[in-house]
C-alpha cells in the first residue's frame, strides 16, 4: 500500500521533471549559446563546456538600442493589461452576478474568437491602423494587445468572481452599497489574488505577442519581439548574437514569472482542482 503510493509519487516526480526539462531546455540552450562564439554556436558537436564570452552582447548593444525596445515592451504590456482589466472587470462582474440566459454562450463565443487565425483580420486591422494613424505607435499596439487578451482575461476574472459568495455582495447592497462600491469595497479586495494572477498572465502574453508587434510597428514603437526578429536575418554568422538578443528579451519576463510563480500557478489551476 505505502510502497505503491511511494512508487506513484516517484513516477509523477520523474514525469514532471522530464517535462519541465524538455520545456526548459531550449531556453537554457539559448542562454548558453549567447555566451559562445559564433563558431562554437554552429558547431555540430554540442558544446556544454566552453569559455564564456560577452562579445555577442557587445555586438547586440552596438547594433540596437535595447532599452528603447524594452521600454516599448514594458509600456505596451502594462498598458494593455491595464486597459483590458478596465474593460474586463465590470464585464465579468455583470456576467458573474447578473447572468442571463446568454451569459454562458457569450463567454464561449468570446473564447472562440481566440481560435481565429490572426492573419484572417490582418488586412482590415492594418487598414484601420493606417487610416487612424496608429501604425507604429505604442497606443495602437497596446490597444490591439488589450483586445487580444480580453477574452482570456474576462474568462479568468469571471471564474474568480464566481468564487465570491453572492450573498456577501447582497449584504453590501442591503447595507447601502451601489454597484461601484460593491466592486471597489468588496469584489476587488476579495478577488485580489485572482486579479493579480490574471494581470501577470496578461502581461506575459502581451510581452510575448509577436505577430501584431511585427506587422504593426516599425522603429518607433517596436517592442522586444521586434528586437529579436531584427537579429534573425543578417548576413554571416548570427546564431550566438540572436541567442544573446533573445536572452535579453526574455530575461525580464522570465524573472517576473519566476518571482510570481505562486500567483501564476494558483491563477492558472484555479477551478481545475475543484
Amino acid at each position: 500500500m505505502i510502497s505503491s503510493k511511494l512508487r506513484q509519487k516517484w513516477a509523477v516526480t520523474l514525469l514532471a521533471w522530464s517535462v519541465a526539462l524538455l520545456l526548459a531546455f531550449p531556453v537554457f540552450w539559448i542562454v548558453l549559446t549567447g555566451f559562445k562564439t559564433e563558431t562554437e554556436a554552429i558547431s555540430r558537436v554540442p558544446h556544454f563546456f566552453f569559455h564564456p564570452t560577452l562579445e555577442n552582447y557587445q555586438a547586440v548593444g552596438e547594433r540596437a538600442n535595447y532599452f528603447h525596445f524594452a521600454w516599448n515592451s514594458i509600456v505596451v504590456s502594462l498598458g494593455s493589461t491595464f486597459l483590458a482589466l478596465l474593460l474586463a472587470i465590470p464585464c465579468s462582474y455583470a456576467m458573474a452576478f447578473f447572468p442571463t440566459k446568454r451569459t454562458k454562450d457569450t463567454l464561449l463565443w468570446m473564447l472562440s474568437t481566440k481560435m481565429m487565425p490572426s492573419v484572417g483580420v490582418l488586412v482590415p486591422i492594418y487598414l484601420i491602423f493606417r487610416d487612424t494613424g496608429l501604425l507604429d505607435t505604442k497606443t495602437g499596439l497596446l490597444a490591439i494587445d488589450a483586445m487580444l487578451n480580453l477574452p482570456i482575461i474576462i474568462w479568468m476574472l469571471y471564474t474568480f468572481f464566481k468564487e465570491v459568495p453572492r450573498e456577501v455582495l447582497e449584504a453590501a447592497r442591503m447595507d447601502g452599497a451601489g454597484p461601484l462600491r460593491e466592486l471597489y469595497d468588496l469584489l476587488l479586495p476579495l478577488s485580489m489574488p485572482g486579479i493579480a494572477s490574471t494581470s501577470l498572465l496578461a502581461i506575459i502574453l502581451a510581452w510575448n505577442e509577436a505577430f501584431w508587434s511585427l506587422t504593426l510597428t516599425a522603429a518607433k514603437a517596436a517592442p522586444l519581439t521586434a528586437f529579436i526578429a531584427s537579429f534573425s536575418s543578417p548576413e554571416g554568422l548570427f546564431y550566438a548574437k540572436l541567442s544573446a538578443a533573445s536572452t535579453m528579451a526574455i530575461a525580464p519576463i522570465l524573472l517576473l514569472g519566476w518571482a510570481s510563480q505562486k500567483q501564476l500557478v494558483r491563477g492558472l489551476t484555479f477551478g481545475a482542482v475543484k
Binding site: P165, E167, V168, E170, A171, A172, L186, L190
Partner: peptide
C-alpha cells in the same frame, strides 16, 4: 443570511 455573508 444563512451563510452569514460577513465581509471577509
Amino acid at each position: 443570511f444563512q451563510s452569514y455573508a460577513l465581509y471577509p
